[in-house]
Design a protein around this nucleic acid. Sequence first.
DNA 1: AAGATACGCAACCGCTGCGGA
DNA 2: CTCCGCAGCGGTTGCGTATCT
Length: 211
Amino acid sequence: MANHVKKGSWTADEDSLLSHYVTLHGEGHWNSVAHSTGLKRTGKSCRLRWLNYLRPNVRRGNITLQEQLVILQLHSRWGNRWSKIARFLPERTDNEIKNYWRTRVQKQAKQLKCDVNSKRFRDTMRLVWIPRLVERIAATSGQSLPACTETSTSTPTISESTWDDNSVNADTSGWGDGFEAGWWEEDGVESSFESLWTEENIRFLQQQLFD
DNA sequence: AAGATACGCAACCGCTGCGGA
DNA sequence: CTCCGCAGCGGTTGCGTATCT
C-alpha cells in the first residue's frame, strides 16, 4: 500500500530517530523500525543507513595503506565479496570498500586497458602490487608486517589457511626500475594508489600485461 | 566567470538464502 | 514440503562537489 515511503538523503531528525531506536532495541527487526519510530523509510533503508553511517566506530574516507593492502589481498582471493572483505576491516563498511574499489582500482585498470576482473589484472595485483605494498608499509612502519594490521581481539585475521603464500612470496625481480621510484609514495595519510600511476608505470605495466 | 565534465559517495534496487509457519 | 517474509549482499544509479575548459 502507498504509505508514502520516503527516499533520498536522510535528515538529522531521521538519523536521530533511527539511532535512538537501535540504541534501545539493538540491531535487527528493521521492518519494525518504521512502525515504532514513525520513520517513512523501508526496513532496508534503515538497515543501510545504520550500518553505513550511524553505527558507532564507522570510519569514512582516508583508506590507509594497510587497509588498501587488506582490500587488495582479499579481493584477489575472493573477488567482489565485499561484505566478506569488510569483516576484516571492522571500521569500514562493505559499501565503502565497494566504492573504493570501483572508483580507484577499476579506474586504474581502465588506464591499463584491461578488465579489472581479468586474470591478468588479478595476477598483476597479486604478484606485483601487493608485495610492493607490503614493502612500502614495512618500510614506513619500520616493523614486520602481518597481512592484516587492523585487527582487534574480536576481528578475524587472515590466517594462512585463507591466504595464498605465493602472493607474498612472488618473485618480483625483473620488474624493472619503473616500480622502484614513486611506488606507494606517502603523502600523509592520503597516500594511495594515485602515486602508482605515473605514465611510466602504466606503460610498464601494459608491457608486462600484454607481452 | 560560467558551463561542461569527471569524480566520489550515499542510497536504492533486485536477487538470493534462510528460517519460521 | 511449500510458501512467505525478512535480512543481507552486490550491482547500479543519482546527486552534490570538484576540476577542467
